[in-house]
Design a protein around this nucleic acid. Sequence first.
RNA 1: UGGCGAGUAGUUCAAGUGGCAGAACGCCUGGCUUUGGACCAGGAGGUUGCAGGUUCGAGUCCUGCCUCGCCAGCCA
Length: 562
Amino acid sequence: MSHAARSADFIRAKVLDDKASGRATEIRTRFPPEPNGYLHLGHAKAIVLNFDIAREHGGTCNLRFDDTNPDAEDQEFVDAIVEDVRWLGFEPDAVLFASDYFDQLYEWAEQLVSRGMAYVDEQPAEIISAQRGSFGKPGVDSPFRDRAPEENLALLQTMRAAELADGQAVLRAKVDMAHEVMTMRDPVLYRIRHSHHQRTGDMWCIYPTYDWAHGLSDAIEGISHSLCTLEFEDHRPLYNWLLDATGVDHPRPEQIEFARLNFTHTVMSKRVLRRLVANGMVDGWDDPQMPTLRAARRRGFPAEAIVELVRHVGVAKTNSVVEIELLESFVRRQHNRYALRRAAVLDPIKLIITNWPVDDEGNGVVEMVDAINNPEDPDAGVRSVPFDGVLWIERDDYRAQAEPKYYRLTPGREVRLRYAYFVTAVDHVVDEDGQVVEVHATYDPATVGGNAPDGRKVKATIHWVSCAAAVDGTVHRYDRLFPESLPDAHDPEIALDARRTYGAKLEAALEDVEAGDVVQFERVGYFSRDVGDGPVFHETAGLRDEWAAIQKAKAKASQIQS
RNA sequence: UGGCGAGUAGUUCAAGUGGCAGAACGCCUGGCUUUGGACCAGGAGGUUGCAGGUUCGAGUCCUGCCUCGCCAGCCA
């Protein structure tokens, strides 16, 4: 290993080595999705890795669609994938398709047949499967395995000429039916599919398999390093065999496998996600609870946060699961710097200031107070918000009875109303169910702006919105859709009440937030404005919440005790 | 059952040719604070999967085991 490669991950070390040895002069990579679904968080790893490595060496990275199975694929996904890759911040050097190479691939297949390295097998799929043998048990040769090249060539041509029905024949590479790697036991190269392809239409009725198309497509594009996930390790010998067999290896691409990106509380299985969408358990593929990139965008996850997380996690061959909280911490770090602070009361109760002044007509005086837009960014300035004697505050910011470590409003205790005044709770009013609906308090006029001239301190500062000026909005908060930290990939437990919806009271400025923009609701979390009429916000990520942690610890402790 | 791959802190990753096991996030404590946020300082946290061996010295080399993942599609 070269000296410079020391602290690089194993793939970058290899790339450096290959450059040093002259094995590769240009570094070319590719991100090769099949257009059969939306990209998810897991794909971000392959995208970042491929583009980063190319950029680090002044090389290129293509977006290549592995569109070899028309039955599963759709133009909609092609468009969505291009969009999502760009959203992540990467511009492909070329957008290409394996289907661009169908003519070339077919030509090489005929050559392989002519050289006796591939044959047409007319047995049904079940027989071929049974003949493949099993782990530790060699397979048996197909009766068609030693057919003459001319006959195979003629047969391949009839396959291509649409003279055979689906499943009637396949083209197989003649490798080794006793090979200890199952993938090498005469893999299928072409199958018959009388299907419409989103790009080639009805031009073809035979389609190359992944194994036949992938390495050759890499070679055609001059890919130097073909990065893929661990489950393709068994395909590497075949990848190389086919390159050797066709002689299409200048320059020869090299397949290198790495571990997928997995998250706790997340399942990426298309089947499971499709079921969630079909059952209406989520709003669609871009529901904020989904693990797709589109959902992340709608939820307000900045692309940079996802990219930074992927870089932070790095690349290795260990099957690993990243805590979803780590992603959220990258999301918070981004938004903390840029998100404007606003006031929103999610679960409102009224706070009435009994000694608030009234004007000559007996109406409460309205005072304007300055609120800081972003304490992390002085340039973000201030805004002016109305304050008066009747406010909305969070239900959770008042307790009829004091409890240990609770710093907020409670009868007799003084807290700060952010940017306004110190108030002291006096008593409260309950409804017929015993729920607090109204808190009465007095304010200290000397504490304008929230400063006490005598230097006295309060332990809590709470947010508020003037009732008269408040705007109604809908706010969605989210718990884990998959409550288990390691949900079953194919049959996970699903939380039916993961989404909590609030009829919130918002400060007026929140009406002006652009769809897709993220703001911080002070003391609550980051929220992304959704498209549509009226203010609707989705929780992007909550703020770290020490009080919640104290309560959680307490609940856990009492659970252990009982 | 055969092949391939992987096991280092709660999590993700580091530790040229063998040379004091580290970082980030999380967690705990303290400071600061008009967000119980952010920020700052400190701390705890490890039998490097197990057992042997070589060596002055092993996460690293050797032997044997264990555990986990992937592979028997005409999916990718």
